[in-house]
Design a protein around this nucleic acid. Structure first.
Lengths: 350, 350
DNA sequence: TTGAAAGCGCTAACAG
DNA sequence: CTGTTAGCGCTTTCAA
């Protein structure tokens, strides 16, 4: 009986034994070095193909100190925004033969720091971080300066950290949307926003307030409602907040919805309660998506730039990986424009 | 000037020099072995914390032969189905300290095989594959038997491959939906489906045909329309197919839409052309999602089981990783039930 | 154009 | 309870 268990994987050493060439020579062939005799190369390649040799990436990484691995650490991987961003990052990176290791913090601040440490441990070449905005500043600084791993932050800002950043221009976007409602004659405009601790939400509220101020409309703090994404019974909570809005003697006549998930809940509540949109209440929403078109009514939003954010972030990261993490950090804000549909009162008879 | 460049990473060796203990002892502390003097452990741990030592995962993997890495290879990472599946897989795996390396084949058969080989090269502990159904059978068999890496296939079947599989019960689901349309009195029922080469699509069409046959309704091949997801101008193509449907002298009175992306395009076309739903044309759609509720009209669908598919697949993979990849393969079909809303004709006056 | 030697950072086996 | 030795599979000198 043959007890010599077949090895799970063919190694360089094995190829060396078979071909009679040394490991370095075979390594050179695999890595496409010059100065290999054509005959040698051909022989080795044919054996490699025959045995279906695949280099052990883990050993190679250990030796070279490069992993070709990019960590994507996101606060939520299952929503409309994130999905498109990840896909566009993936597209850029796969072209450069970088692989993605994906982490979902699920809105947990502790996990955010933990995954950053896992990323260090994995010796990733770079990190793209869509944070809750509360990651450990010291940790991030140390990753950049000591470990020299470049980081690009998207979505939510982390202050006091000299890192590349790519954001939606939230203030301007929110201002545009709010002003559009004002142009329809609305003065009692509410805003429904995700967690007030995220900078993207804070900035959207800021843009909303600026628009009101510029038009001499008083800010009513009761009109500012927020729901944390991670909250249980998320959709029910949205409905509670909106019913609060309608319980006031001075009811709002329009709502600025600061994200798509919120829009789904909001519309859902309004339909259940037979509110006419935009007749009873006008709406605008921040994020765009293919399906807002077929909502009832189609939502007036800002043009979607999710893919662009992913592409820009990935390219920025690649640039830093090539050029060294310590160079001056860039902050890129990507602007967007209004897409008018029906929910705001344009094109409508409701 | 001090030219001794500070190292990017603290190593075991360095900790060893500092503490005076040997590398194995430190390694044991890190890996929580018993039989370490409390004093030794405390000393070592304090130095580790102070220096913020993080084990090099690549070296550890090389030594142990385990990477704790799971490859997720999906044909499309940016749609409603996939997003939920990935999130639920992630949830299961992160609990077991497995990390995810994410690949998107983008409907490219060549890339599918390429990424499988990358996964081998990375020595992943397991693979979850949502394929186009055309992966290299030999390659997959060799991964299972030779490399002993467990694979779980979801979404589309790959024939002649003895691998664990988790699927939506497409035939039964499609049958239920079609029968529901029939129960409303429809006889001219069209189906709009993704690429006919994917088994999930084929099975849905099969279920549709079974329902028709069982009710003695003749199958009209003209009523079966398909659009490949990867097609350029995807939404325009959908609209073309639907307008074809309406160009027939025997126009269909109902459409079974076999996936959510298709539903968006279909609804969009019908609204543009002022068709009343379900009055002019009744609809049912396969996948469910939070937002089909607020579509106009809300879509009658099958209850969403995307999360369940991810959870079941991930647990199955974990089981095989633990118990050896060679055990008998399981095939799990997950059933679903009808969620009646308005698009089918229930609850409606249109 | 090729090979010998060394070592990346870690852990397993064995000895004590 | 701890240290010595060895080696995972690869690539990088350096020398020939």
């Amino acid at each position: 009986m043959n007890n010599k268990k077949k090895p799970k994987y063919v190694t360089l050493n094995y190829i060396s034994e078979i071909t009679g060439y040394s490991r370095p020579t075979i390594s050179r062939v695999i890595n496409g070095h010059k100065y290999i005799k054509k005959e040698t190369r051909d022989k080795i390649i044919s054996v490699i193909n025959e045995l279906n040799y695949k280099p052990e990436w883990t050993a190679r990484s250990l030796r070279t100190g490069k992993t070709n691995l990019i960590a994507i650490i996101f606060k939520d991987i299952a929503n409309f925004f994130t999905t498109e961003v990840i896909a566009s990052i993936q597209e850029v990176l796969s072209g450069k033969r970088k692989d993605i290791i994906l982490f979902n913090t699920n809105f947990d601040k502790g996990l955010e720091n933990e995954y950053l440490e896992v990323a260090i441990s994995k010796r990733v070449d770079g990190i793209i971080l869509a944070s809750m905005g509360m990651a450990n500043v010291q940790l991030i600084n140390s990753i950049i300066t000591k470990n020299e791993i470049p980081i690009v932050i998207i979505d939510n800002d982390i202050k006091d950290v000299n890192v590349d950043k790519v954001f939606h221009d939230n203030v301007v976007g929110a201002k545009i949307l709010t002003e559009h409602l004002i142009s329809h004659g609305h003065k009692r405009i509410a805003i429904i926003s995700p967690s007030l601790r995220e900078t993207s939400a804070i900035e959207r509220i800021e843009g909303y307030k600026i628009a009101l101020k510029n038009n001499s409309i008083e800010i009513n703090e009761d009109y500012i409602k927020s729901i944390k994404f991670k909250e249980e019974k998320f959709f029910e909570k949205i409905k509670e907040r909106i019913s609060e809005l309608f319980s006031y003697t001075q009811k709002p006549t329009a709502i600025f919805i600061a994200s798509t998930n919120l829009a789904i809940g909001t519309l859902s509540y309004l339909k259940e309660n037979n509110y006419k949109i935009p007749g009873d209440i006008a709406l605008v929403s921040f994020d765009d998506h293919e399906f807002v078109n077929i909502m009832n009514p189609p939502l007036t939003t800002l043009k979607s730039i999710n893919k662009e954010i992913g592409t820009v972030a990935a390219n920025l990261l690649l640039k830093k990986i090539k050029g060294g993490a310590k160079k001056e950090a860039e902050v890129i804000k990507i602007g967007s424009k209004l897409i008018v549909r029906d929910s705001c009162g344009c094109n409508s008879k409701n």
